[in-house]
Write a protein that binds this DNA or RNA. Structure first.
Lengths: 147, 147
DNA sequence: CTCATATAGTTTGATATCAAATGATATGAC
DNA sequence: GTCATATCATTTGATATCAAACTATATGAG
């Protein structure tokens, strides 16, 4: 049985192409973030705060799919740059509420718009119909295991 | 202009779904590797050696799209587990040839086959035709910038 | 041959990431 | 009220990753 007649061939081939696509796009879009001095996670945190308003670290972690231990460090680094601040304003004193500072708000507005443009540029190699199809197929694959 | 009439909406939406799909699949397939005590990069190195035979670090880095500095450490860790060995067999004494040991060869055979199965399982949520379409669209997106 | 330059690999320093352990606080059972 | 348990955050230790500096070796120009 040669490679192309192996019944797994199609699946493996599709997988490889999907991974390459995701990686290429991530790298290119990521440049827009690093040009602004942000890592992808940092951008994710700022973007979450920008769209959802102040959040506790637990919720931020859930939103960007990282561990809470990880978020602690990401927030540390954002705080050093004075882009966010931590406050204990909830009644439950275990919660730290993370808020964008003014400069954080300004930065994320600009960078978010730049990233948006970069994504649109990336997707421009597909027609609208192709984008819809890709979105639909990706969604099927991305569903949690149980389906 | 609300979200859905924004001309960027489709692109952003497609992007998000693509990223989620890639991440979900990577995480699920990655479990097969970590079950064998391998990181994704370590698996990548072993797999490259398995399919291409002995390689120098430079070529391994190129194959799995990581920096050579990075490969040094990955190989260090594989060497500690006695899965690969470094030898200076090229005429050019700058080159280190990395080879699978017998236990490395045995391990990668098993794990590769498990990973293959995991990928096939993942792709099973799509029909063959859908997989072909996804592959084709991914390929368009994954092309280097110049196209 | 000698020197400049290029290349292979290593090391270092920074950030990211997770998992596991820990500390602080809140909550529920009694 | 007190104790057991759960939750939020931090810390620690491991690996991963990149970029930049560095070492050793090779190669080409003269």
């Amino acid at each position: 049985m040669n490679a192309k007649t192996n019944p797994s061939y199609l699946a493996l081939n599709t997988y490889t192409k999907l991974m390459r696509a995701a990686e290429s796009v991530t790298n290119r879009v990521g440049r827009t973030m690093s040009a602004a001095g942000l890592t992808i996670s940092q951008f994710g945190v700022l973007e979450a705060l920008h769209h959802k308003g102040p959040l506790c670290q637990r919720d931020i972690a859930a939103k960007i799919l990282k561990s809470t231990g990880n978020i602690t460090l990401v927030i540390d680094n954002l705080e050093k740059q004075a882009l966010v601040k931590r406050e204990r304003i909830s009644e439950d004193r275990r919660y730290l509420t993370v808020t964008l500072t003014e400069s954080g708000e300004t930065l994320i507005r600009t960078v978010f718009s730049d990233v948006e443009s970069a994504i649109v540029t990336e997707m421009d190699s597909l027609t609208s119909e192709e984008q819809e199809t890709l979105g639909m197929l990706s969604k099927k694959l991305g569903l949690p295991e149980g389906k």
